[in-house]
Amino acid sequence: MGGTEHLTVRREGATLVLTLNRPDARNALSLAMLVGLYDGWVEADEDDEVRSIVLTGAGGAFCAGMDLKALAGQGMEGERHRHRLEADPDLHWKAMLRHHRPRKPVVAAVEGHCVAGGTEILQGTDIRVAGESATFGLFEVRRGLFPIGGSTVRLQRQIPRTHALEMLLTGRPYSAREAAAIGLVGHVVPDGTALDRALEIAEQINACGPLAVEAVKASVYETAEMTEADGLAAELKRGWPIFDTADAKEGARAFAQKRPPAYKRA
């Protein structure tokens, strides 16, 4: 199991939990964190025992955005990982889910600050839970910067454009309740319980057929920008093969026998 000094990895049953672990800096993104994140996505994709991923942050924060000094590898914190970025200049975008989409569902558990790069990573996750005191926002324009992690493209596809533009152009903070009202997050829970709720959702996913879950996720994303006719055709190509799997037959048998299914990814 991977991980770095700024990214911890652990298993909770069939869920891989990735924790941004730099609490003294509100989990600002460092090179060590990005390397750990990317390796975590790859580990989840390659391990058939992993059925879902939960992404969270340590110390009561999710992520306060990019730490440019640490990303540049200045100082001991980043230098030991510099060779990874040199070998794959796209690694940081893959880590932030800009240029990579895990095939397993990703549930975000947000407490505290989830701003700038934190809100950008959030847009690459599939299901989102926030503590009541969580704060969201894309602050880049306030600093004369551009939210280049994908937000000018993705945000308007995930929430109404008027809300996307307000978030992008004002750079103001959003409360968890406001984020839920505009559709950026799906659940608001008492502070300190976001991870528990995310793990509950992940466990519900884990109880489903893994081939079906992965095919459904893939279909949702690949058809998002298609016409309805093209999307429906693509859905059939994804969906019909699932009915011929041993897992599909096991699901039907388990239902008839009134027992939990034992899926084998086959």
Rank of each mutant, 00 (worst) to 15 (best):
A130R: 03
G78M: 06
G231L: 07
G124M: 07
A95D: 04
R82I: 13
K94W: 10
W41D: 02
I159T: 01
R11P: 04
D39K: 03
K217V: 02
A198I: 03
L20E: 01
E49C: 08
E43I: 04
R84M: 06
R98Q: 12
Y263H: 08
V188T: 11
L199M: 07
L168D: 03
R259F: 13
Q257N: 15
V189C: 06
D126I: 04
V110L: 05
A72K: 14
T223W: 00
D67L: 06
T227R: 08
D126S: 04
P173T: 11
E178M: 09
H113C: 07
Y263N: 05
M226G: 08
L31R: 05
L91N: 04
L122H: 01
G137D: 02
A252S: 10
L34V: 08
A266D: 07
A116G: 07
A130P: 07
D230F: 01
D196Q: 15
D45I: 11
M33C: 09
E214Q: 13
A256K: 05
T125A: 10
T245H: 12
R101N: 08
A254I: 09
T4P: 04
F146S: 06
D191M: 02
L34Y: 01
V115A: 05
D244I: 03
L155N: 02
R142K: 14
L7R: 00
H92R: 08
A14H: 15
G124A: 12
A233D: 12
R238A: 12
R11M: 13
S52H: 04
T135G: 01
R10W: 11
N206Y: 01
L199Y: 01
T119L: 08
L29Q: 09
E132L: 09
E132V: 08
V17R: 05
G2Y: 10
